[in-house]
Amino acid sequence: MAVGMPPATEQWAPRGGSFDIRRILPSAFGRLPAMPSKLLRGMGCMAYTLLVFVIFALAAYTSFSVFVRSGATTVPSVEGMSQTDAANVLADQGLALRIAEGRGRYDDKVPADLVARQSPDAKSFVKRGSTVNVVLSRGPRRVTVPDLRAKTLPLAQAGLSGTGLALGRILEALAPHREAPGSVIEQDPDPNASVPPATGVDLLLAMAAPGERYVMPDLVYRHYDQVRPTFEARGFKLGSIKFERYEGVAAGVILRQFPLPGHPVSREDAISLVVATADGAP
């Protein structure tokens, strides 16, 4: 027969002594008295935290209510408006407009004479009767184009750099009025034009004009004594003059020439001639 637990009516105890359940669960019996104390402390902390939150919420609500009842209003946005329109919009909210001292500020997005900045900012809460300071726009920053005509390219570049402008395209053309080569004939934009900073200024420079060119006439069989004074009177230079005997041709008649007839010639070019001499001449 299997050995089991003793009957309920019997007092069971282990061998060697009486039975004590606290020896089996000593830790549980040791903590039982401490559990109610920690629970109470936790509930007290929660109650204190809840009380502080309620007091803070009531104080915030009361302050906001007093603030609203005292005549507070929201600042409207007046940026981008004219001075008159901004003053009217602020007056509708019981606020006053004041223009900030100074000449305003440059603004690339807001046209001149419109409100560029405001303080306090839009949607801020202020009391009625408060003042809103605004700064008027002076529009985009502009610079005046200097007069670069008759200046050399280095001087023109220095003038543009000093005014915050950039050098644009550079073109060349023959000077119509004999301007110095390399000097500025025209510019775009024109002098004294008002342009944004860093605008490029195109320059037209004078080119060195080539000498005047003429068509060389046919001098063969013409008399040298007639040709020479005519050319010298017009500024042409006669270079090498050679004399040769040529049968059947009178002395002083031009036999050959350089440049050849029809070729271009300038006053700087030397004209060479071969002239016939009389029979028996060296």
Rank of each mutant, 00 (worst) to 15 (best):
M1S: 15
A2E: 11
A8D: 12
A8C: 07
T9M: 11
Q11Y: 03
W12A: 15
W12H: 08
A13I: 08
P14Y: 06
P14H: 04
R15L: 13
G16L: 06
G17P: 04
S18Y: 08
D20E: 11
I21S: 08
R23N: 12
L25P: 02
F29E: 02
L32C: 05
P33A: 15
M35P: 02
L40D: 03
L40C: 04
L40S: 07
M43E: 10
M46F: 11
L50Q: 12
I55G: 14
F56Q: 10
A57I: 10
A60F: 09
S63V: 13
F64P: 01
R69I: 04
G71Q: 11
T73I: 03
T73K: 02
V75D: 05
V75R: 01
Q83I: 06
A87D: 15
N88P: 04
D92E: 15
L95C: 08
L95M: 09
A96K: 12
L97E: 01
R98E: 07
R98Q: 12
E101I: 03
R103F: 07
R105S: 14
R105Q: 15
D108Y: 03
A112Q: 14
D113C: 04
A116S: 12
A116I: 10
R117S: 09
Q118S: 03
Q118Y: 01
S119T: 04
S119P: 00
S124A: 14
G129N: 02
T131N: 08
T131A: 06
V132R: 10
V134F: 05
R138K: 14
G139S: 05
V143T: 12
V145K: 00
L148M: 04
L148F: 07
R149A: 00
K151W: 04
L153Q: 00
Q157L: 08
G159R: 02
G159F: 05
G159I: 03
S161Y: 07
L165R: 03
L167Y: 05
G168K: 04
G168L: 02
R169W: 03
I170L: 13
L171S: 01
A173S: 06
P181W: 00
V184Y: 10
P189R: 01
P189F: 02
S194D: 09
A198Y: 07
A198H: 11
T199P: 12
G200D: 12
G200L: 10
G200M: 10
D202K: 10
A206R: 00
A206P: 01
P210T: 00
G211M: 08
Y214D: 08
V215Y: 01
P217F: 02
V220C: 07
V220N: 08
R222I: 06
Y224A: 13
D225M: 10
V227P: 00
T230D: 14
R234G: 11
G235V: 09
K237V: 12
K237H: 13
L238E: 03
S240R: 15
I241C: 07
R245P: 06
E247F: 04
E247W: 05
V249D: 02
A250C: 04
G252N: 11
G252W: 02
V253W: 12
Q257D: 03
P259W: 13
H263S: 14
V265D: 12
V265T: 14
V265F: 15
S266R: 09
V275S: 14
A278H: 02
A278T: 07
A281L: 06
P282H: 08
